[in-house]
């Protein structure tokens, strides 16, 4: 019984331990640190913007994009030809040509 009461008292004591708590103080140089962080962010973005806006870099990037587009188009064309060839071979193998159908007289009444 005594033990239970003792624990209860300790619990109450712990719950009261934040009474009269003083506020913690932030770093006195907080503003300077925030300013440095903001400036660093700005510097990083402005460096990127400056770099991208240089005429040589901008022209180079445009050239790369155009080149990539050309490569994509030409590779698509060659693959279309390949596909066409394969279809023709397949049609020939299975005698799918319209001439064959006419020769066999399937469409005739």
């Amino acid at each position: 019984m005594n033990r239970k009461k003792e624990i209860q008292e300790k619990v109450e004591q712990a719950l009261r331990s934040l009474d009269g708590l003083e506020s913690a103080s932030a770093n006195p140089h907080l503003y300077t640190r925030i300013r440095v962080k903001l400036d660093q962010e700005r510097t990083a973005w402005s460096w990127l913007a400056n770099f991208l806006s240089k005429p040589m870099v901008a022209i180079g990037l445009v050239a790369v994009v155009i080149l990539l587009n050309i490569l994509t188009i030409t590779s698509n064309n060659s693959s279309a030809d390949e596909l066409n060839d394969q279809l023709v071979t397949l049609a020939q193998d299975y005698s799918f040509q319209p001439s064959n159908i006419l020769e066999n007289g399937i469409n005739q009444p």
């Binding site: 300790k10 004591q13 712990a14 009261r16 331990s17 934040l18 708590l21 003083e22």
Partner: peptide, 19 residues
């Protein structure tokens, strides 16, 4: 331990913060 806790309550406050 919160820096604003009174000296004599530090031990109890530590247990409370854990809870």
């Amino acid at each position: 331990i919160h820096p604003g806790v009174q000296m004599e309550k530090k031990q109890e406050a530590q247990v409370l913060f854990r809870a």
